[in-house]
Design a protein around this nucleic acid. Structure first.
Lengths: 345, 345
DNA sequence: TTGAAAGCGCTACCAC
DNA sequence: GTGGTAGCGCTTTCAA
């Protein structure tokens, strides 16, 4: 493996000149620059990441903390990860995977070892126990998700309140005057994923405005609890029930459960929700799906992080960005086109 | 940030002793070891990853090269990534994400920069253009997938030949005497993902043995081509058609497409295939699913990599490991239980 | 516009 | 069983 010393020798310059050619941190004459670049090419030189990190105190790596809990929807998760990795590369950084299996230990470890210069945390809980730790961390952190107390933190997420409104509007336009939201068990809401709360808030507001009634049936992401919720809803429903859910796993399960009970989604019941669906699958969903735009959210998360990492002020921050959802797919409701993305401002 | 020098000072020992306490590479008296450990604890010392990598020529990181092409099924991909990350941590290593967007450049970069000590490559093609590059790489590499010429390479994958056999057996037991395999376009098979080939081989062999007829309809993972294949099959079918596919996306689309055509999967048609399905969804699949055991495959991949990384012989290797699939879920065929994983030896 | 040299924090060799 | 110390390959002053 050639070193920058070798490059210097070949180019007939000093090692520091090689360094400055690569970093551009000081003016170099056209002539020497070309010589150095030629030498780099010739030797296929690549700077040693460890040495660079040691000397510069920058690893050129960002840590991505991913949730591997049962409630996470792997397909959606991957959608985020893919964009984050690609965006990071565009900024000349790599991505280190940190599973939340290690919990706070993991955060402290990767930052303590100076393995990365910044962190992105996914699946942030309302009262996330990582927050006190994050506040003490000496690297910038961006949350995907909005905790209850986001003061001074940098957060970005889909606008679930708006998504709730849109779902109810969709429901109303599909001719329903009442519907049921299937979300998490109430005892978990508030202490865990609070986007359900935000979603409920938006939905309830819209329901009032539109004069439709809305119930909230708590359910977890397992088949049994969803089934129970469905039974309850069908029993209490006059005619065609409508289901709304902010959770992708639930949205995948619901149509199947309905069919098992002899209800054809779109005809005998409406299913409306938000999620991150892969393009291949979205057009065949039996539900009306609002896209929470994981690609946009991820990209902004990385950009915010890089802004912070390049900021002079070490504790700059306090971003709170909400990305509006898009209606990408309507299904089974008369009078609606099945595609045509539409901005929601 | 405290350094090992600080630890040494607090413990009243030399810096090298601190190093040896951490690495265990030389005997340390109980007494000093405790003193050092106490100092480490007290200062919450964490070794600087860059410095360590520089001095030891080991980064304690493995690179994971993931495919972000349209043909990859994100949910399945995540299943692999999660296990790889967890297993790596258990070996005291971290995982660096390398997207194949960079192609061979990416491989050469992360190895050249000495960002990682080993690589795992996913979604290996039959004539993968990364292979010549990999052979020159100075770090061990494990492939998930089996290229045509695997000589000297370390490969692991699900046993798709066996999976093909099992699918045909399932089909036969479900009372079908003929069926259709929906795989990739033939022109792609052979140059790209060759597990389809292996799958076809196994399936055809079993078909001969069982005296059932089998067609292969090429289709891509998009809705339109699958639909065309379905139409062709239904037209040529007497009675209840059977579909077999080695691709998860196809398996997710098929039941929906069938329903659109008025065919209820399990009753009017059988859908059988292999894939990596999340536990929450598997019991509601409209198909008979053989689990390709992504968790087991991933775990073995990491273990093989660590064996290579610890091997004295730098070009040890030439592993080829096939993991048998499990019948985890049967659907819509009389006389079968809907669950009960069963080993296939 | 360029070079020399002092570290960055760790490991591992050589002494004792 | 332990300590001293020479690098690992880079960045970044300080000098010229």
């Amino acid at each position: 493996m050639p070193t920058s010393k070798d490059v210097a020798a070949v180019a007939g310059v000093s090692q520091s000149t090689v360094s400055y050619v690569m970093s551009g941190k000081r003016p170099i004459s056209e002539k020497t620059r070309l010589r150095v670049e030629a030498a780099i090419e010739q030797l296929t030189y690549r700077p040693n990441a460890g040495a660079r990190a040691l000397a510069s105190r920058k690893s050129q790596v960002i840590g991505l903390v991913i949730p591997l809990t049962p409630e996470s929807h792997f397909g959606s998760l991957m959608e985020f990860i893919a964009v984050i990795a690609a965006t990071a590369r565009r900024h000349d950084h790599d991505v280190l995977l940190v599973t939340d299996e290690e919990g706070n230990q993991g955060l402290e470890r990767v930052v303590g070892q100076q393995l990365c210069d910044g962190l992105i945390l996914m699946q942030v809980h309302a009262e996330d126990e990582r927050i006190p730790v994050v506040r003490k961390l000496r690297v910038p952190v961006v949350f995907i998700g909005i905790p209850n107390d986001s003061a001074g933190l940098n957060c970005i997420d889909a606008d679930f309140a708006r998504a709730g409104e849109l779902c109810v509007e969709e429901m109303s336009q599909a001719g329903h005057t009442s519907g049921v939201i299937i979300g998490w068990r109430t005892q978990l809401v508030g202490s865990k994923l609070n986007y359900v709360d935000r979603f409920l808030g938006g939905a309830k507001g819209a329901a009032q405005g539109l004069g439709v009634t809305l119930d909230h049936l708590p359910a977890s992401t397992d088949r049994r609890s969803i089934e129970a919720a469905v039974d309850a809803c069908v029993a209490g429903s006059d005619g065609r029930p409508a289901f709304i859910s902010p959770d992708m796993t639930t949205l995948e399960l619901l149509p199947r459960i309905l069919r098992e009970k002899g209800l054809e989604p779109g005809r005998d019941a409406s299913v409306i929700g938000v999620g991150a669906v892969s393009e291949a699958l979205v057009e065949l969903q039996e539900s009306t799906i609002l896209d929470i735009q994981p690609r946009l959210v991820s990209q902004r998360a990385v950009e915010i992080l890089f802004n912070l990492m390049n900021a002079d002020n070490p504790d700059a921050g306090g971003t709170l960005e909400l990305i509006p959802p898009l209606v990408t797919h309507r299904h089974g409701t008369a009078g609606h086109s099945a595609t045509a993305p539409q901005s929601t401002g």
